[in-house]
Simulated scan of single mutants.
Amino acid sequence: MGCEIALKESAFFRELLEKLIQENSEETLIFEETRVRWNEVKRSGEVNLLCGKCQKCLDLDKYIMLLYKFFNEEISKNDLRIELYEWTQAENIDDCLNIGVPTLSSEDFNISPFKNNDKPIYYLDLNVINQYKEIKFIKDKIEISKKIYEYAYSPAHVFEISRMNNYDRLKDISELTANLVILPEEVNLYIGYENPNYSLERIKKKPEYLRNYEEYWFNESKIRELYFPEFENEEFRKRVGSSNDLFFEFKEQINKALLFVGSFQLDMIKKDIEQRDYDEVLFCLYCALNIISYKCDNDERKFKSGLYDLEHLKYAWKADYLVTRDKKFYIRAKQIYNLLNFKTVVITYDDFLEKHL
């Protein structure tokens, strides 16, 4: 019973904190709401029923403490924003770890080995695959090109489809790629054949994992505002956005961001990439570009879609070509792959149509 009370009360006090961290918040009114509600909780004796151990009881304790510290002028509004952000991210990480990845058996896979025929492999993002589905002459040209090219998909495509609940697209992926898939191994990537429905069924075993990962990723969008306000400057954003040699021209700023999200620097990246898995290096580089405002979106929907761009980056380097219709993703992917000396050539959808089909 006490934990059910904590669920209700923590949501209420969290809402007060969210109001409070706004620039023009009515602090006096929020203080009065906090005082009245907390007195009601104490008078009812409900506070004595809290276990103090479950997440919602811990949340309630944390939120009351933050409100108390702010109204007693022990922390500033910016300190409050940072503490609330860090608490939320820690909770998101705990949720991901507690849920964990699905426990899988051999029956969850149906992979056969790749028959390497020296054809170049093309990895199309989902927006390009949509064109294959919707425009007949594009589909016809791609079908003809299969005489000289291979097309591959990855779990990143299935992640996107599962979040959109448009499972018909799996048929298009299967038809386009003949089930050629790039899958993760322990330290590398593996190419084989598997129907994408198997990948979907593995995701469905723990769909909440992906939702928590999305929530964690969206909260990452607040890093720049909270910790690196100097990168919010409009003049700086314009200079970064027009850079053609980002990792040279803005090396100092990127290294600063990398120290926040990881533990390596650009000068050491070739050595570090041998000691770490590619997922970690790509994740840190992608987050660092977000922090310095390089070709990123702050809109919630668009920022969340950046998570899938990152997931595509983690798989596409195993292919010979990465094709995208997203200009920002195209530029980011080129910068990162060039830095890491990946063989993969990043091309636009227009170039793909004009020069490759």
Rank of each mutant, 00 (worst) to 15 (best):
R14W: 10
E18D: 05
Q22F: 00
R35D: 12
N39V: 05
R43N: 12
E46L: 14
L49K: 11
L50T: 05
G52W: 15
G52D: 14
C57E: 06
D61I: 01
I64E: 05
Y68G: 09
F70R: 04
E91S: 14
D95S: 14
G100M: 12
P113W: 09
I121C: 14
I129G: 08
K133E: 10
I135C: 02
D140N: 07
H157N: 14
N166S: 15
D172H: 02
L176R: 03
V181L: 09
L183P: 01
L183E: 01
E186D: 09
P196D: 06
Y198N: 12
P207Q: 10
E208N: 14
Y213I: 12
E215S: 14
N219Y: 04
S221A: 11
L226E: 12
E230F: 13
E230S: 14
F236R: 01
R239P: 06
G241Q: 06
N244V: 04
E249P: 04
L259G: 14
D267Y: 00
Q275S: 12
R276W: 15
R276H: 15
V281P: 04
L282N: 07
F283Q: 00
Y286P: 01
S293N: 12
S293F: 01
C296V: 11
S305I: 02
L307D: 04
D309L: 08
V323D: 11
T324G: 02
R325D: 13
K327V: 10
A333P: 00
K334D: 08
L340N: 02
V346P: 04
T348P: 01
D350K: 15
D351F: 15
F352N: 00
